[in-house]
Amino acid sequence: MKLNQSLIALALAGLSFVSLSAQAHKPWLLPSSTLVEAGRDGAAWVTVDAAVSEGLFDIDHVPLKIDGIDVSGPGGIKLTPENIGNGKLRNTFDLKLTKPGTYKIALVTQGVFGSYKDKDGNIKRFRGTEESLAKDVPADATDVKLTRNESRLETFVTNGDPSDDVLKPSGKGLELVPVNHPNELRAGEKVTWRFLLDGKPAANQGVSLIPGGVKYRGTLGEIRHNTDAKGELTLTLPAAGAYMVSSSWPAAAAPVPGQPPQMVPRRASYAAILEILPD
C-alpha cells in the first residue's frame, strides 16, 4: 500500500507517473468523444473527465489536478478549458474546438523527489520541483538521493477531418509518435506506434494497452508489447472501446528482499487515452 499511496500523492501534486503495474492507480483524461462534427458556426464542443482511479475510467478515487492542462490545435492555436468543474471524485472541463482538425490535450509534469540525512543523521524525505529543491534540501544535508520524474498524459480529439500538426514530438521525455492517426483507429486493423525518448528511438521499450470497463469484464485484458530497435511496435487493434496506452522508462528493477525499491536518477513516463472505433 505504501507504493500505491506514493503514486496517488504524486498524481495529486501534478507529478504523477504512469506505472505499467496493473495494481497502480492511474491518472486519465477521457473526452466525451474523439471525433466530433462542427455546428453551423464551424465549432464543436467536447467535455473531458479528469481523474485518478484504480479501475481504468471508473470514477472511484480522486480527481486529477488539471491546472497544467495544455490544449493545442491546428496551426498552433491554443485553447483554454471552459466550464471547469471540480468534483470530489473527478474534475471536468469543456473545450470549444474552433477550427477543423486535430487537437491534443496534454498534461506534462516534472518533479523531483528523494531523501537525505540531516545534520543529526535523521533520514528526511521530500517531494517538489527543480525550483523548490534548494529550499527542500538543506545545504548541510548528506547522503542526498534524487529522482527526477517526467510524465506526459495525452488524448486527442478531431473536429471534422483529421490533421497532423499536433502529432509532432517535442523531443523531451518519453513520447508516442503515432504512425497511424490516433483518431483513425479501427478494431481489427493493424497500427504502428513509435516511441521516442528525448527525440531518439526508445528501443526495447515495454508498452501496455489496457481497455476500460474491467469491473464489467472481471479481467484486466492488458496487452503487452516491446518496441523494436527503431522504437516501433505493430499490433492488431482489439475490440472497439476506450483504451490507455502507457509506457515508463527505465524498466522497473527486480525487487531485492529486505531492501527498499531502487531509486533511479530519472524516470520518464507516457500515457495516452485512445478510442478504437468499430470496424
Rank of each mutant, 00 (worst) to 15 (best):
S151P: 06
G241S: 09
S16R: 12
R194T: 14
D164P: 02
L15K: 14
Q110D: 13
A242Q: 10
T234A: 13
F126P: 02
E175W: 03
S72T: 15
I69R: 00
G199A: 05
P31E: 01
T234Y: 00
L79C: 04
G87D: 12
T234D: 02
A13D: 15
Y103N: 13
S32V: 02
G199K: 07
G114P: 04
R40Y: 03
E154D: 06
L7T: 11
L7A: 13
F195G: 09
Y216A: 10
L107H: 05
K117F: 08
F57H: 09
L277A: 12
G114S: 03
P138Q: 06
I223E: 07
K99D: 07
P74M: 02
S163V: 05
V18N: 06
D94G: 01
E150S: 12
G231Y: 09
S269W: 01
L167S: 09
L89Q: 09
A13R: 15
H25T: 10
T192S: 12
L197A: 03
A13T: 08
A9R: 15
A43E: 13
W193P: 04
S170K: 14
T34A: 14
L133E: 11
R152F: 00
F156P: 00
V179M: 14
A242W: 15
D165C: 06
V191G: 05
A24Q: 01
V264Q: 13
N83H: 14
D60C: 04
A9E: 13
G212Y: 11
E37Y: 03
D164H: 10
L64D: 06
D41S: 10
L220A: 13
L79F: 09
E154R: 02
R186K: 15
P74I: 03
N226K: 15
D140W: 04
F17E: 11
N83E: 11
L277K: 14
A272T: 15
V108D: 11
K145L: 11
E131I: 04
E82S: 12
G14Q: 11
G76M: 10
R125S: 13
